[in-house]
Design a protein around this nucleic acid. Structure first.
Lengths: 348, 348
DNA sequence: TGAGACGAATATAACGTTTTTATAACAGCC
DNA sequence: GGCTGTTATAAAAACGTTATATTCGTCTCA
């Protein structure tokens, strides 16, 4: 019986031309109300859904933005440990996209065929947001030559695509300054993440700036490193204590390590914050459930996703605009682990 | 200078035909290794990304699965309250899709143009997973006529598309049975969600089955309703207490209401679980942080997303296979609020 | 040496829309 | 009743791939 269902069939049955059907489906102008209704009814009756591919091909618009991220929990046992903030970024991106009538095409790249997937995605969208380190700089450059690209949270050089990130440095500086000014701590240790993590490096830089601001000695390198994991943070702090080091505060590169630090300090019989203050970074969910509740720095992950997509749309709209670089402010979340008695915490 | 970059340009520069370029990019067969390298090099050099639309049009394959959900936090002030489980479903879907070399196109439908977005998405994908109540039954039916559809967590009639959901009824029955058998509670109250929520209805049904199993009187309707919100749950329980009702246990339709119930009971000077036991449903994040830690029922949201996409692929692969209906088991998570002393909790 | 067979590469017709450009219908106006 | 200016519709040319059917060599084996 029926051939494959196309716009021709719908046009014929509605007694109009394909052009009219096209305009009706696109909510355009140039047809009467009755025509509109007739066409819509026919389409629904036949169960016709216009081919997005044909549409995209003919119109050169896809109505889709891509979002590439390194991983979303493919790492076997570590599933639940995979970065939760990705969810928030997706939410933000989805919101900004929906507002503009676009859908979001997501894909993780840290898998075997990840690079291929990334290019496949790139071919289907009007522009793409690329999260930190999920594609090589060369690949990003190739993509950027053929479609709008926004890089998220990890700037690539100076001449690259638009960039949106958070103020790691400022947040770290602020929380360290809080420890110095408010709690009069003068001997602070920084617990770093992986050495090749730009986040960790920026946070250490902010930490150093705070020390510098207060005329305290500035270290060349972090006191220790915990690989951004809870276990690593605990081990690093335990080692520090075993060496006889007793800083007045430990500024941790992220919350996971801070949680580990808390356990390690308790195990050593040291009190937080009385003996040693501890701060984290990221404000993950457990931060305000752990005891003492963790003073940390919150990154506006959702806003990040939103801003990234908005920036992408700006770029789609004007491909020759000057390169944009957006840095969203971070926010210090005061709880107990820094020594404060009254927590100051807005809802996330 | 350059025209718009197409396969023709790449073919010309590589000294081969477009067909060869196409096959090389698709990792097909029928070309020599040298040709392959030459073409790939040219493509990279030119920064050419094959048009996904043209590809999809010609091949009738998109390499994309759609995922439609009602909302992802567009509701103004309630942002953070929006259902977190959606994130998990997305993660599961993304994983299953990536495994098959597909990307995931996501869109929320509870917005003004939500329905249009849904149809737009449908036109771009090889199949679509539709989450509970984000599209009318008629719309789903229209979609299902033109592409594979899997309905998530909310069955539509008996003749509809493939279905994947969780065992609400069984989970509710299991947790109620636990209260009866292990903790010898005989006077249980069910705190329902919105009356039109199939989830709530199924959970109430399971609750009733447990009572029936134990030869306890089975109520016609829930003891009270809290609209699935923390405030609503608290208010409902407060009202119950004010009326002089003192059930031995309150089985809540979801965790939010259970958390509200906990507060309300504390405010009334009642001890949980000594005076009244409380259970929840969903195992949201706070469930194990609240005091007493909440005994609840966990739904495998991530597995749900994964299974939905796998089921979708099955359908794509064989469109005439018999209708499939998958119900994933739920799991009772024993904590303190039911009266148990030793929590039994696997990592989520 | 020639017939077959096989691998590599090509030419070209789909694929199903949107978008011009052109035409037809239809008021309103003198 | 012809003229004009809108508006609604029609016809056909893109859009950039993939897939089918073919061609072209080269190799193998009788």
């Amino acid at each position: 019986m029926a051939d494959r269902l196309t716009i021709y069939e719908v046009a014929k049955r509605s007694g109009v031309s394909t052009a009219t059907v096209s305009r009706v489906m696109a909510d355009g102008k140039g047809f009467s109300a009755t025509t509109r209704e007739r066409v819509r009814a026919t389409a629904a009756e036949l169960g016709w859904v216009p081919s997005g591919s044909a549409r995209g091909l003919a119109s050169k618009r896809n109505g889709i933005v891509g979002l590439l991220f390194p991983d979303l929990g493919h790492s076997g046992e570590l599933e639940e440990e995979s970065p939760l903030y990705v969810d928030q970024v997706i939410r933000g991106a989805e919101r900004a996209a929906t507002t503009a009538g676009h859908a979001v095409l997501i894909a993780a790249t840290r898998t075997a065929a990840g690079r291929d997937l990334a290019f496949m995605v790139a071919g289907k969208v009007d522009g793409v947001v690329v999260m930190a380190r999920c594609l090589s700089e060369e690949d990003i450059e190739v993509l950027a030559r053929s479609l709008p690209v926004v890089v998220l949270a990890n700037r690539y050089g100076d001449g690259g695509p638009d960039f949106v990130g958070t103020d790691n440095r400022g947040g770290s500086r602020a929380v360290a300054t809080h420890l110095i000014r408010v709690h009069a701590r003068t001997d602070l240790a920084f617990l770093a993440g992986p050495a090749d993590s730009p986040d960790s490096v920026e946070r250490f830089t902010g930490f150093c700036e705070a020390l510098h601001d207060a005329d305290l000695p500035v270290p060349d390198s972090p006191a220790s490193s915990g690989g951004f994991t809870e276990a690593g943070g605990g081990a690093a702090v335990a080692a520090l204590i075993a060496e006889g080091r007793r800083p007045q505060a430990i500024v941790c590169g992220n919350d996971e390590m801070a949680v580990g630090a808390l356990s390690a300090l308790r195990a050593s019989g040291l009190r937080v914050p009385a003996d040693i203050a501890v701060t984290g970074f990221d404000d993950i969910g457990v931060a305000h459930h752990v005891r003492p509740a963790l003073t940390t720095v919150r990154q506006p992950m959702r806003a990040l996703g939103e801003k990234a997509v908005q920036t992408l749309f700006d770029r789609v709209h004007d491909r020759s605009a000057p390169r944009k670089s957006v840095v969203l402010p971070t926010e210090v979340v005061i709880r107990r682990s820094c020594g404060c008695r009254h927590t100051k915490e807005n809802q996330p």
